[in-house]
Simulated assay, not measured.
Amino acid sequence: MDAAEVNPPRNADDDGLLALDPPRRGEEEKLDLRKLLLFERAVAAGSLSAAAHELGWSQPAVSQQLSALERSLGTRLLTRTTRGVVPTPAGRIMLGRAEAIRTQARAALEDLRSAASTTDQTLRIAAFPSLVGGALAQSLEQLASSGGGGFEVLEHEPPEALDLLRRGRVDVALIFRHENGEPIPSGHRAVTLGRDRHRLILPRRWGLDHDILELADAADLPWVAGCQRCTQHLTQVCSEAGFTPRIRHVTDDPQAIQALVAHGLGVALIPRLALRTPGAAGYADRIDVVELPHLAPREITAVHPESWTGTARLDELIAALRRRI
């Protein structure tokens, strides 16, 4: 084994810290991503020789790179032994950070690749169910017929869609926001697509459409609720109307909500977009719809990285959705 693999850098104390001043502002520039990933590879391989073999490098070259990383950081990351290398306490800390840094670097490269083309790209979209089944599907049909890049759609509620966007798994999140909704992630832009008002839907067989004119009139009826955020919104607006809804059924599927109401199992608060999906037509003659103009509408928003502003394919999608919301 090469002596460089056994001997640690000089002037290091017992805790693996070199005799350097504490980090100062701007010293993060000393962190060389390539050397950091090499350090991660060496720990995984168990020795500098094994890491060098995997990379097709010489063992002294690997040792020199890692020693340079340790000097730049002011701390010893590896303990070199005759059996290989093991991370020091400081090395274990850096190892935990290395995976997160590598993930962020990969996400940054994916963003760059996504933004490199404005015509032949595949636009990755996360959207909530009542938008996917109606306005979004109709918009994508129109855009697909005009050529250009393709589309990938993932159905997710707004919190999950925003999380995918933050992690670079999608290019745009189509979400709805009630008052005091989720904050927009840093480095992203929110574009309003339209506003979506709620309706109260009742089983037609109950014959209550002339008796129920506002939300409070349904206080004594059983309710069908939607997703977690929709249920929270239902509870809030009912509380403002002076009652607590007796929720008997819960489903994330807008069409299932309408089916439950159509079959006489309860009443529901449902957004206009859900009533306009193709599947809603099957229940149109079995439910009554009560307008609730006093309820604040939810805002339909497209959220995307600021770097995507002005991208042709995204602009086309936004324009198509605005025509349908």
Rank of each mutant, 00 (worst) to 15 (best):
A312I: 15
L295H: 02
G133R: 14
L66W: 04
L164K: 05
T103H: 13
P23A: 14
P305F: 09
S139R: 06
L143P: 07
R97K: 14
H233P: 02
K35S: 12
R313I: 12
E99G: 11
S114P: 03
D211E: 11
L154T: 13
D111C: 13
S47K: 03
A116S: 12
R24L: 15
L112A: 14
P22D: 07
L295F: 07
D15N: 11
A137H: 04
T301S: 05
L174P: 06
R322M: 12
W206G: 02
A225G: 09
A108Y: 05
L164Q: 06
V267C: 06
A135D: 11
F39W: 09
E316F: 10
A98Q: 08
P297Y: 09
T277L: 13
W57G: 00
G16Y: 10
A42C: 10
A127N: 01
E316N: 13
T75Q: 11
L193A: 03
P297C: 09
P158L: 06
V153D: 00
S47Y: 07
G26S: 10
D32F: 08
Q142T: 15
A137W: 01
V237Q: 00
L273W: 01
T235F: 00
F243L: 06
L73E: 04
H178P: 01
R92H: 15
G266R: 00
A259R: 14
T251W: 07
L193K: 06
L69W: 05
H233W: 14
R76E: 08
A259G: 07
A259D: 07
N180P: 01
P305L: 11
R324N: 03
D252H: 09
Q255S: 11
D13E: 12
L20P: 06
V250G: 00
G46H: 07
G266E: 01
G149P: 06
R113E: 12
H53L: 12
R25P: 13
E291R: 14
D209Y: 11
A216D: 09
T103V: 11
V172T: 01
A90I: 10
A44R: 15
D171L: 04
Q228E: 09
D252K: 05
V290Q: 05
V85D: 00
K30I: 12
E306A: 14
G187W: 13
I257A: 00
L273A: 12
D288V: 13
A127W: 05
T88M: 12
V289N: 03
A319K: 11
A52G: 04
V132Y: 03
E99Q: 15
H233K: 04
T301W: 03
N11G: 07
P271G: 02
K30P: 10
R246S: 07
A256I: 08
E179L: 13
L213A: 06
A98M: 08
H178C: 01
R298S: 10
P87Q: 05
P89K: 12
D21Q: 15
V170A: 01
I270D: 09
I300K: 00
H198P: 03
D32C: 09
A90P: 02
T192M: 07
F128Y: 14
R34F: 08
I184H: 07
L17C: 10
I287D: 01
P305V: 12
P60R: 04
L20V: 15
A190V: 07
V261L: 09
T277R: 13
W57P: 01
D15S: 10
